[in-house]
Every structure is written in structure tokens, then in C-alpha cells.
């Protein structure tokens, strides 16, 4: 009985360590904590079991779930253009949208999407404070010049996503992502 519980604990622990997705790892962790609490109870330590069940299984999991919600957000501005980025009845769609969505999911980030009517003018970008987007996209050519933004061409030749030059880390990780040179091991 105790040995079985112990081995179940080991299996769940391996599950936590092997999972790549943080959410799945947290769920495994909850299962692990409950198993361990039962194990402690079986080993004749009810006080420890209760502490582990309440603190380890319930409260820690709650905090993890809240903390993992969306860490960091990318502000995206898009120009509506049919195959690249557009809004449907149930959310957004388009090739560039899915690209960004996958990127955001991978880095556990959240997309804040705003629609803009047309390609912003130089004056807007330089003077208007409300133009604080990290990314401008929507089937843009990579030959445009948007001050403060750098074009990142992706696999469709001639098209680019414009990333704010200041936000260096988004730029680099997005570049890695688009080029496909992502061999980070989780």
C-alpha cells in the first residue's frame, strides 16, 4: 500500500519534470501533492499529510494558476487584410495572427490587439503618444519605412512584421521564432 503510493508519487514527479507545458506541469504537481499527502497519511503522519494537502496541493496550485495566467503582453496593431490578419465572428484569424499567437503561447504571453485603419504616417509615429505598439502587422511590405520599427521578413518573401526597435527581447525572440532557429529545450 505505502510502496504503491510512493511509486505513484515518483511517476507523477517524473510527469512534472517531463512536461513541457507549464499548465500541464502544474496539474501534475497537484496530483503529485495529493498522492504524497496520502502517502504521508499511510506512513502514520496525519499532521504532515494535512499540511501538505492544504498548503501544497490546494493553495500552491491556486497561486500557480493565478500567477501563470498571462505573463507579459505584446501590444499588436494590425491593418485588416484578408489572408494575413482579420477579424471573424469568433475571434481573429489569418496567417500572421496565427504566427503571432503561436509565438505568444510559446512564451506564455498575451496579445493585446488593436485595429488601425491604415499604415501610420511618420508624423503619427514620431509625435503621437498613443502609438506605443510593440508590433505592427497586416500584410505589410518589408520595404516600408516606419521610424522606430524594424521589419522582420518571414517565410513569405516580401512581407514583414514590424517590431519596435526598443523592445529588444521581443525582437530577438520573434526573429528566432520566425527563422525557425528555436532549439530551446524546456
Amino acid at each position: 500500500m505505502e510502496v504503491t503510493l510512493g511509486f505513484m508519487g515518483i511517476i507523477f514527479a517524473i510527469g512534472v519534470v517531463l512536461s513541457h507545458n507549464p499548465m500541464r506541469a502544474v496539474i501534475f504537481m497537484g496530483a503529485f501533492s495529493i498522492t504524497m499527502a496520502t502517502y504521508y497519511y499511510a506512513m502514520g503522519a496525519p499532521d504532515v499529510a494535512m499540511a501538505e494537502a492544504t498548503l501544497g496541493a490546494v493553495f500552491t496550485t491556486f497561486i500557480y494558476v493565478v500567477a501563470m495566467k498571462h505573463r507579459g503582453s505584446i501590444k499588436v496593431a494590425y491593418i485588416r487584410k484578408e489572408p494575413f490578419f482579420f477579424k471573424t465572428n469568433n475571434g481573429f484569424a489569418g496567417s500572421e495572427y496565427h504566427l503571432l499567437k503561436r509565438f505568444a503561447d510559446k512564451n506564455a504571453m498575451h496579445l493585446e490587439i488593436t485595429r488601425i485603419a491604415e499604415i501610420p504616417s511618420h508624423k503619427d509615429l514620431q509625435t503621437d503618444r498613443s502609438f506605443q505598439f510593440d508590433i505592427i502587422c497586416g500584410g505589410l511590405k518589408d520595404s516600408l519605412s516606419l521610424p522606430g520599427y524594424t521589419p522582420l521578413p518571414y517565410h513569405l518573401r516580401g512581407f514583414a512584421i514590424y517590431v519596435k526597435t526598443d523592445s529588444e527581447d521581443i525582437y530577438e525572440s520573434l526573429e528566432d521564432f520566425l527563422v525557425g532557429d528555436v532549439n530551446e529545450e524546456y
Binding site: V16, M43, G44, V48, Y64, Y186
Partner: peptide, 29 residues
């Protein structure tokens, strides 16, 4: 040691702690 994502590293810390708790409980029992 192995994980790169900080969250997963922290979860592993939790497992390590549970291991020590299990050790103490085993010693007691």
C-alpha cells in the same frame, strides 16, 4: 538543473522539498 523555463524549475524545487518531507516521514515511520 535540466529545465530552462523558470516556472518549471520552481515546480521541480517543490518536488525536491516533497522528497525531503517524505524522507522525514519515512524516518519517523
Amino acid at each position: 538543473i535540466w529545465k530552462d523555463n523558470i516556472l518549471l524549475k520552481l515546480l521541480s524545487l517543490g518536488i525536491m522539498n516533497a522528497g525531503v518531507v517524505a524522507l522525514f516521514v519515512s524516518i519517523a515511520g
